[in-house]
Simulated assay, not measured.
Amino acid sequence: MARRRRATLEWSRRQVAGLAADGLPWSDFAAASREVINHMIPHDAAVLSLVDPVSGILTDTFRTGLDDSLDELFIRLELTHPDPITMTTLTGRRDGVGILADHVPGGPHSTPRVRELLAPHFDLEHEMRSVVRSGGSMVAACGLYRAPHRPGFTVDEAASLSALEDVLAAGVRRSAAAAAGVAGARSGVDEAEASVLVLDADGRASGITTTAQAYLEQLGGGEGGALPAPVRMVAEASRLRQAGHAVSPFVRARTRTGRWLMLRAAPLSGDPGPSRTVVTVEPASAEHTIDLDLDLYDVTPRERMVVREVVAGAGTTAIAGRLAISAYTVQDHLKSAFRKVGVSSRRELVHVLTHHDARGAAFGPIATVRQEMLRSRT
């Protein structure tokens, strides 16, 4: 049995690594990886999502066996009823995986997430979660679920899911690199116009500017005016903050063309009617995204210190003095960072990390090289 389990795990790792090497868009990579995971760990429902590591908000989600109609309830429970396997908690664990039943003496139904969300709405009871980390930060998360009549998840299954973390992280990085390769295409957004939408008390858009609409389409807004997950999530975070919960109503989300956007939400001041929420959407500055990109490129903490100095305009001698290292060590760190990001000069490095909306236009070949560099690290 142990030999068969090892063979299955090795096969699964090869399959996911191959998918990662293909540089698929996140939704395609997540869907195909879920099929592999299901072969190794059978389940009735699954969620694989990119995550903003600062706010913990899901930004681009693939799911099967359940829908997105209750995302606001999910984030409310996640942020206000913490349990032992919240995503933030799992990020600090070595294996990054948690089986809910192993951490709640009263059984899964003693937790609000099962009692109020999974069981009554989706007929699910057993839950196992994992986080995907890159550069030490959570960049994605996975949730697997089984119906009440099925057996719960096991320690061996948790170990198997944990063993996929590095190849799943490679898939996240390469989907980001692939998107960056086409990010130079014109966005079709008039950035001189304010990007604002107003949500009513039921979470529906009651007003939206044309620029905001264009951004929402880039984030994957659905047919019939369905709002993308980051908008619904950040609006719910704003409502929780108004209720006194210590949550941050902002999120950084990457569009499907590789561009980073910043979303913020706040209550509409002086609104005489039912509570409404204003969401603003704007291109994220390098200040807000450089660490996310360096995480995705798996740049080490020491390399990151050198890169940030370069982005700030410092030369080799100045960097060596500030970091108390030799000029040769500065160059070694830079060469490693160049290789990981897929560039060959400081100018290209700075451009890639600070011009998210133009890297494909000015450095189209670099995006291709970057994908090949990342591919070689599998």
Rank of each mutant, 00 (worst) to 15 (best):
D52M: 05
V97K: 08
L90Q: 05
N38D: 05
V131H: 02
H43F: 07
P108G: 02
P53N: 01
F62D: 09
L58W: 12
D123T: 14
E78Q: 10
T86K: 10
L66K: 00
S49F: 00
L19M: 10
S49I: 01
T88C: 06
S49V: 03
S134F: 06
I57L: 15
A140I: 00
A30H: 01
I41D: 00
A140N: 08
V139C: 04
H103Q: 12
G56E: 03
G135W: 11
L79C: 11
A101I: 06
L124V: 02
H81Q: 13
V47F: 01
M87T: 14
V36L: 03
V114W: 05
A30E: 01
V97T: 05
M87W: 10
D22V: 12
G135R: 14
G92D: 07
W26N: 10
D95R: 11
T64C: 05
L118D: 12
R63W: 14
V114Y: 08
R76L: 11
T59V: 12
I37S: 00
S49P: 06
L24G: 06
I37A: 01
A21V: 07
N38E: 09
P112A: 10
H109D: 15
D68L: 12
P82W: 13
S110K: 03
I57C: 14
T88I: 14
L118R: 06
S134D: 09
V16S: 01
T111H: 10
V97C: 02
F74L: 06
F62S: 05
I85V: 11
E116Y: 02
V139W: 03
E116P: 05
H126Y: 07
G98H: 13
